[in-house]
């Protein structure tokens, strides 16, 4: 399979200071192997765009511990007290974006759309510095699309072309992030033969996926453990 990479080989596609989209909602649908790869690398100054920053010492939390991050863009960082502390200590910039705005901005980024107007957050602190426009009598904010150098996503299965299907709510931000990175790397639980995924069930067509990495983790009794 041309697209298959060894666990940490993908790091060569990332440079210091790059912007990286990382899929996941909490720990679900989070590319844990790829995050391990970033943590083990010498990369620094990364901007990560992800809904959360994991938990202390878990998921994207390990990048914070390893001082890999310059900035985090997302909707909810409160679940990681290390992120709160790093921000308070001036070690991490944070840009807070409403969750729906984050998802739509990434969708636009991957769809050739420069930005969009949304009612969400109009009249709030998160509207500071943003263009506002009245449309049909209602207040809307302009939000710019989000694109990235690299997308690190997590899917359930890939076929040998890189078509992807997801596991339940592990889908979350992954399909839109698959469209918005210059280089897209998908971590998967399983690789199957081309033709084994029903065309009608494929969520992310292979055209978006540059490389596939087999996950080092499996789900067991409610936690993610390393594959034996």
């Amino acid at each position: 399979m041309q697209k298959l990479l060894d666990a940490y080989e993908f790091v060569k596609f990332i440079k210091n200071g790059d912007t990286v989209l990382v899929g996941g909602f909490g720990m679900s649908g989070t590319p844990l192997t790829l995050i391990d790869g970033l943590a083990a690398s010498s990369l620094t100054g990364l901007t990560v765009v992800s809904n959360n920053l994991g938990e202390p010492g878990k998921g994207l939390g390990i990048l914070l511990e390893g001082k890999k991050l310059k900035k985090a863009v997302g909707s909810y960082f409160t679940t990681n007290r290390d992120a709160v502390k790093a921000w308070a200590d001036g070690e991490l910039e944070i840009e807070l974006v409403p969750q729906g705005t984050l998802a739509e901005a990434v969708r636009c980024g991957g769809a050739g759309i420069g930005g969009f107007y949304t009612k969400t957050a109009a009249g709030t602190k998160l509207a500071d510095g943003k263009e506002e426009r009245e449309i049909d009598g209602e207040r809307y904010l302009f939000e710019k699309a989000i694109k990235a150098d690299v997308s690190l996503i997590k899917a359930h299965k890939a076929d040998r072309l890189g078509n992807l299907v997801y596991d339940h709510t592990g889908r979350n931000f992954n399909p839109v992030m698959a469209t918005a990175g210059k280089v897209v790397i998908a971590e998967v639980d399983e690789i199957v033969g081309t033709g084994e995924l029903a065309p009608a069930h494929i969520v992310t067509p292979h055209v978006y996926v540059d490389y596939v990495v087999l996950s080092r983790y499996v789900k067991k009794a409610g936690v993610f453990v390393e594959r034996e």
């Binding site: 409160t78 709160v84 921000w87 807070l96 409403p98």
Partner: peptide, 15 residues
């Protein structure tokens, strides 16, 4: 206080 989480709250209020 430190304001580091909004999640989907504003989207739900708006929509």
């Amino acid at each position: 206080a430190t304001i580091l989480g909004v999640g989907g709250a504003m989207d739900l209020v708006a929509g």
